[in-house]
Amino acid sequence: MNKKSPSEPLLSVEHLKMHFPVLGGIFRHQVGKVYAVDDVSLTISRGETVGLVGESGCGKTTVGRSILQLYQPTAGRVTFEGKDLTRLSRKEMRDLRRDMQMIFQDPFESLNSRHTIGNIVEEPFVIHGIGTADERQQKVKELLRRVGLSARARTRFPHEFSGGQRQRVGIARALALNPKLIICDEPVSALDVSIQSQILNLLLDLQQEMGLAYLFIAHDLAVVKHISDRIAVMYLGKIMEYADADTLYAHPAHPYTSALISAIPVPDPTCRRKAEILSGDVPSPIHPPSGCVFHTRCPYAVDQCKETIPELAAVAGGAGDNHQVACIRTGELRL
């Protein structure tokens, strides 16, 4: 891995909060809030992959979008290479977007169906006024080749491609301006297994070659674990646990992480589920439970969990700040 300066992270998110208003009544005034992201902190170093995993509605996508300032965060700081993104002007932010790109779950919806693949991949150069028309065409060819598409693809339209190929186009477009960070929001969730592995390999190769950092957002822990150096597990807008990929899987310290791991069907019929099935559904982020947000589903919850909001803190006897958990019963639990 080519981490140039491990001391200073490429991106750091501090106490990020993103609350969306809920409007109601005849005058459409605010009647409540969706606590989509509620005090999330994380850092990403150069060339590193941080995985963000959690179930639907946990706020993982909102974290990604708030980092890119597609939403104006309610509170908190997002620092990229020492610059506080929440204080930048629109012009400054636009320039910075060269360094931070995003790829999406459904590459069909994120590609303009009326544009050719050539136009789509060329667009970042046009927007940022880079190169002559000939140079741009040359770049587009290179990018397409890099993601495993032929140069002939330039004249074709998104609908002529399969899901996996469209995701490659999305990746080519994200790579165009040589970014330092790519936010990948469920990039392989819509793809078939055999294609999913092709895209994951491509992302790994590109990272090796270009020293890219990824924030990899997904609901599938097996996929996240495969591609990430470190993983943050989110539940109802908060980070429950944060650890190295291997540590998280081998020594989960949060009951939610442990339940998430045991809920994943293992492709081996000889080791069928050791039943650790969480009851109930994820509560609404409009009325998150008091205290620990997970206490309503937690098999280990005690009365105090309803009152105390657990802080994310280093796991005792763990890997220091490299393994953090938000649970008041850490230490006593044997997961």
């Binding site: 996996g164 055999s194 592995s197 790994l204 097996a222 674990k225 495969h226 591609i227 994943i264």
Partner: peptide, 21 residues
Amino acid sequence: LSAIPRLDNTPKTRLNTIRGM
């Protein structure tokens, strides 16, 4: 079977794939 990421894989290793589509 060899293309699925498994929880006990070594992270950040290439997966086997089925070429083409």
